[in-house]
Design a binder for these strands. Structure first.
Lengths: 225, 225
DNA sequence: ATTAATATTTAGACAAAACTAAATATTTTA
DNA sequence: TAAAATATTTAGTTTTGTCTAAATATTAAT
């Protein structure tokens, strides 16, 4: 019989755990102080302070000068925050009709609301979605995600056909670029030509022929047909 | 042409403004330091500190030893928080099927999420409700509420008929008592007898005959038919 | 109208989370 | 491998929001 120690995790702590989770590919890899500082817009010294606190609470593994990784408890805590973030994003887009480039900042706030019952009811209300509006996977109650096989569009070969299933960069600017060029999750894409000089390519997206730079194809996940 | 100074109001500040708003009947009346301390579960000295800060920001009128009231700016800020609280309560009950005694604590968190667009979209999604699940009025975008004429059930006379439209106490315990006795917003109530000794009364609620104490009738708002 | 009781404010401390500047490790480069 | 560059940590402050204990004001009671 386990004793569930329910620990108070502050909003700041949650944000640090989330940063480590994302930077360290779901928390497994070790992450540098500076990388966290960059991502969170804080000074390296602040990061060190917070990491010590998180280590004290057994949420991260920390060895001076060697970087940090999440403990199992930290991983679950981070994944739960990410789960809430992505569920709220689905709510905002599906129910309140926000555009996919508008939801991030609001979800950043909503993800910190504490109520297990709220999360599970929201999940049910949304029909147990597995992906957020940007194609990112939604962790389950236990913090696990089931990943699908996908490739970067830039890796495909001439004449390959695929479906857009996700993005690396989800910045507002990139999302607006995709809207403008009628590229969306679920779009059918075929590679019509590749330019070896600058690695740009011409593609057919749901019938529209457009040319995209390597910057773009490097940020689009697709599933090959 | 007015310059809208958008001021950063912290979560704590919002909670103090809300307390003053509720204690001072929408912020008009002057409220005592101790009353605020009681409501917010803080020490009187902490309240004094915060009041000074709010006065500095022109959100409250403050004269030492004379209590505080909200300025127009403070009133609007408080009303906006209350608006968000009550809209979220409607969402939780209507869309996520929470019971009316479960929603307060979650709405306390959601009310602090900052996004005007979110509030207006939520409002529309819910069909522009004017009352929350406990019958309390929802302020409009400008912080104004339109109140309806209502009386306390305890004030009515023998054989009067009425409809339940609101509650003074919205504590979980009271809400559960009402559920148990099948009293809900919209219930039709007729006064069958009044006991002058303890001011209890026998009433017919949608066909059920029950006896309620003065404690109960003093906390139920009704509209006379 | 004094005294007693209560309410309010001031003064001084503390914890959380951030910062700057200085010190120390580590890594890179010549 | 020693010097230079970069990364990380330590030390000392700051801000926000809280607290306790002591001082002062206001209100109630004899």
């Amino acid at each position: 019989m386990f004793i569930l120690k329910l620990m108070m995790v502050t909003l700041s702590e949650e944000n640090y755990l989330k940063a480590i989770y994302h930077l360290g590919r779901l928390g497994s890899l070790s992450v540098s102080t500076n990388a966290i500082a960059d991502r969170i817009n804080a000074k390296a010294s602040s990061v060190t302070d917070m990491i010590k606190k998180l280590a004290e609470k057994n949420l991260v593994n920390y060895v001076k000068y060697q970087g940090v990784s999440l403990t199992e408890q930290g991983r679950i805590t981070a994944a739960t925050v990410v789960r809430k973030h992505r569920l709220w994003e689905v709510f905002l887009v599906e129910k309140l009709n926000f555009r996919w480039d508008e939801v991030h900042d609001i979800a950043e706030q909503l993800e910190h609301v504490k109520s297990e019952k709220l999360v599970s009811k929201l999940d049910a209300y949304l029909g147990y979605p597995t992906r957020d509006p940007h194609g990112d996977p939604i962790p389950d109650k236990d913090g696990n995600i089931k990943s699908i096989e996908k490739s970067l569009l830039s890796q495909l070969r001439l004449n390959d056909s695929c479906v857009c299933v996700g993005l690396i960069d989800s910045s507002s600017d990139f999302l607006k670029y995709l809207d403008k060029n009628k590229i969306a999750l679920g779009s059918n894409i075929q590679i019509l030509s590749k330019e070896s000089f600058d690695d740009s390519m011409t593609i057919n997206v749901d019938g529209n022929i457009i040319n995209i730079s390597q910057q773009i194809s490097n940020n689009l996940y697709v599933k090959i047909k």
